[in-house]
Design a protein around this nucleic acid. Structure first.
Lengths: 342, 342
DNA sequence: GTTAGCACTCTATCTGAATGAGTGCTAAAC
DNA sequence: GTTTAGCACTCATTCAGATAGAGTGCTAAC
């Protein structure tokens, strides 16, 4: 492992580089004050750190920049969790104070705040269906051929889907079916809905209405929606101000990826509870090779509920972002539990 | 006005510049073939055109580039409506063929196609509330303090809003109120909803339920939503490939503006029926000074319904975009009328 | 009215020199 | 043995000057 002094030097280099985005030289480290050795000594250590893979050198006569391994060490061992600035705390309090009714509004607003606090891009995943249950189901015919299916969840999320009515199915058939679902399945977790329909409701439908097959087909269509978590993006243009993305090509790669909702969902969903940091190539998608992603989960009454992420260049203000994310995820959990807890 | 020959030369210059993004010289015009004069003659005409304000010169020894006035003349007089390429037509047909139920899906999909066909950014405005009517209204209590209000329009759009229940209002109060609205106001145009509530429903509520004031307040809250048209963006990253936006500063100005939904709504809504071209400073917002916006409207049974826009640099392929937009707006109108027409 | 010819202008590109930040090594100091 | 001063060396960046090339405007000839 690294010696005390090596740690200090690595820490100083990462810190400086995060601020300046320029290779860090031995002299500037020596002058910082927190590493009281001469440039020559620091140079020797830097050579060692490079050999160990924690640092890289763009070219022979340049300073050093952290490698992914270097960032990883920095994050795992050193990052001192600075307390947030007063003005940032005020922004966070604002979230709690605002009178937001719908979960989606809370999530959306949290994303905006996060992006403006960090100057990076925020990616938030809305509530997982997994943890909400059915509040109300409705089938509303629009004309002879199409109808709208509306699902309301326990958290007040409304999903809707326009479907075509299978031939032969009447308005009263649909009404009866919807009533049946509400009577039998209100309160059932969303992810258990389909199995329950097949096991219980099917027979009931068969008894009460004609066109069993068609009605089941219709329900199948109606319940496909809402499967996917909603993705909220904020601060995408913050990517533009990062010097590592002054190259339009790299920028486009990242921005294009940010438009792909499924990619984002996959990216954020792969984390368990708590705060996680993925640095550069540790990211699943290789288009994010120059980026780091820090994620946290928020919850409703202890049940993990959704994910918050901050995407920025690998040269990211880890300490600040981790601190912010930690506070914000707690604030969100509190806000939601206060509103929708039993 | 311009002479025949001046027109030809202006046309050639704009055409060349749209392709190359580089100032156009007299020699290259002469070599194109369609203006059979020597460079010297063309130079004389170019000097005149510059004096008249149709052309600009970046510096003394460079070629000419079109001014906004030049583009305007090009668009108004010259742009020959080229027939679309076969592959593009196929893409358009695809839109008609796809089985899309909801209006929003049609709009969204049209935007994607448009962006990929033109390589610019598409901005589409969803249906105007103005032209849809109420299909169904519902109030669903979530717990003691909050409820979800759901509005379904004649086109199958579902708007929902979570609201807090004024104290004293009971579930049965809400149910009765919702039933009343459905009975009395189904089929009423959305924009007439509020006036009708005040004039007719108010008294009814007063007769049937307690807490008149609170219920009216609740309805007021519930109907605020859905006021704004939805904005669909596609191909924002196409801005990055335009050489005029290799300057990150300019790029950020435009991309930031694209995130401001109200600005976009205002921008697109200011047009009457048909196709319109706004060039550079003709745009309302001065952040779009380097851009041109081409808009078209789509309709349902002749009633103007929403707007489609293409945003690109002033150096835009006007002929192609206008042609595409014309076809697409017709295709959308057809698709919608086929599905939701009476 | 049109065009060839030519001087002139201005940008972009290349070259080479100077600058300076930073390293690695060696030898002396602690 | 550890630390540091000193020095030669490397490499990117910057700047000035030279050059090439694209394009113009003007004049005079056709």
């Amino acid at each position: 492992m690294l010696s005390e002094r090596q740690s200090m030097i690595l820490n100083a280099i990462v810190d400086d580089y995060i601020r300046s985005a320029e290779p860090v030289g031995s002299r500037s480290i020596s002058k910082r004050g927190d590493v009281a050795f001469s440039p020559a000594t620091i140079r020797n250590e830097m050579a060692d750190l490079e050999e160990l893979g924690f640092l890289e050198q763009p070219h022979t006569s340049a300073g050093r920049i952290p490698s992914n391994k270097g960032y990883r060490y920095y994050v795992d061992h050193l990052a001192p969790l600075k307390p947030l600035k007063a003005e940032d705390l005020k922004l966070l309090k604002q979230l709690a104070a605002e009178k937001l009714n719908a979960v989606e509004e809370v999530v959306q607003h949290a994303g905006t705040i996060l992006a403006s606090m960090t100057n990076y891009t925020s990616i938030l995943l809305g509530p997982e269906m997994f943890n909400t249950s059915l509040k109300h189901f409705q089938l509303l015919p629009l004309n002879e051929t199409t109808a709208v299916a509306i699902i309301v969840t326990s958290t007040g999320e409304v999903e809707n889907k326009t479907i075509s009515i299978p031939s032969g199915v009447s308005a009263s058939d649909m009404e009866r079916t919807a009533n049946l679902l509400n009577a039998k399945l209100a309160g059932v977790p969303m992810h258990k809905l389909k199995p329950r329909i097949y096991s219980e409701i099917g027979q009931e439908i068969q008894r009460h209405a004609e066109h069993y097959e068609q009605l089941m087909k219709l329900l199948d269509d109606a319940l496909i929606s809402g499967k996917d978590q909603k993705v909220f993006l904020s601060g995408t243009t913050n990517m533009l101000i990062q010097p590592e993305f002054k190259d339009i090509g790299k920028l486009k790669t990242v921005l294009d990826l940010l438009e792909e909702t499924p990619t984002l969902t996959r990216l954020l969903n792969s984390e368990q509870k708590g705060i996680h940091v993925r640095i550069g190539s540790e990211n699943i998608h290789q288009g994010f090779a120059n980026c780091s992603l820090i994620t946290a989960t928020y919850s409703l009454e202890g049940e993990s509920f959704g994910t918050i992420g901050i995407l920025g260049p690998t040269r990211m203000e880890y300490a600040k972002v981790i601190g912010t994310l930690d506070l914000l995820s707690r604030a969100m959990s509190r806000a939601l539990t206060g509103r929708y807890g039993t």
